[in-house]
Amino acid sequence: MSVSTVEDQDESESAALLRVIVGGVYAIWLREVKRALRDRGQLFGGFSRPILWVIIMGVGLNPYFRGEVYGEVRFVVPYTYLQFIFPAVIALNILYTSVQAAVSVIWDREFGFLREVLVSPMPRPMILFAKVLGGATVAMFHGSMAILLSYFADVPISTGDILSGLGLMFLMAFGLTSLGVIIANRIRSFEGFGVFSNAVILPLYFTSSSVFPLDPALTAAQTRVVYPDWLVRVVELNPLTYAVDALRGNFIHFYQFDPRIGPLVLLAMAVGFFTIALIEFRRN
C-alpha cells in the first residue's frame, strides 16, 4: 500500500492557513447542521412549539380576542391575536434552538470533541465563530419552520418579507447562540442546565411583549395605568422586546417602537454577545 504525503514547504504558510480556516469553518458549520437534523428530539421541538402556540393556543384563545361589538375590543392592535403572537413564536423557536446549540457546546466540552478541534490548526476565534454560525443557521431554520404556519395564522408573507425576515432571524439567532455559549461557559454541572434554560428562555420570552402588547396607541403615562410600572419597566429593559418588535414589524408591519431600534438592538446583541463569548473562549 502506498501512503501519500504532502510536504508543508510546497505552499506558503498563509495559503495553508486560509485553507484550514475556510475548510474548518465549513466543517464545523456542517457538523452543527447535520447534528441538528439528526437530533430528532430537537427537530420535533421545532415542530411542536409552533403547533402548540399558533394552532392550539391561537384557536383556543380566538373567541376571547375576536370582535363582538364594533368599536369595542379587548385587544387594541390592528391585527388578530394570532397575527400578533405569530412573529413572537418565530422568536421563541429561535430562542430555544439557540440555547440548545449552546448545550451542545457543553457536550462537546464534556465528551472531548472540543479537544479534537482545539488541537487542530484552526485558530480559536474561528472555531467559536463557526460553532456559533452553525448554531445560528439551525436556529434560523427552526424559526423558518414557524413561518410554514403563516397561512393558518392569516399572515400574508411576500418573498421580500421572507428574505428580510431571514436576515433579522439570523442576526437574532447569532446573538442568542452567543448568549447561550456565555451561559454554557458558566455551567459546570449538567444537572442544573434544564432548570437554567427554563429560567432563561421562558422569562425572556414572556417579558418581551410577545404575548401582550404595550399598547402603542396610548401614551407612555397611560401605558403605566394599564400595566403596573414594574412590568412595563421589565419589558422595556428586555433586549428581546426589540428583537421581537423587529420581527413583528417585518412580518405583520406593526411596530411598537421606532422601527430603527429593533435591527440596531439585534446587531448590538450579535456583536456584543459574540465578543464576550470570544473573550471567554480565548481565556479558557
Partner: peptide, 27 residues
C-alpha cells in the same frame, strides 16, 4: 492526537468524522 476519552462525534458517520478532521486540518 488520540485522547484517552473518545473525542469522536457519535452522530456523524465514520466517513463524516474523518472528513471533518481533514477539513479542519486543511487537507
Amino acid at each position: 492526537v488520540v485522547f484517552q476519552e473518545p473525542s469522536l462525534d457519535d452522530r456523524l458517520t465514520l466517513y463524516e468524522n474523518l472528513e471533518f478532521h481533514g477539513l479542519v486540518y486543511g487537507v
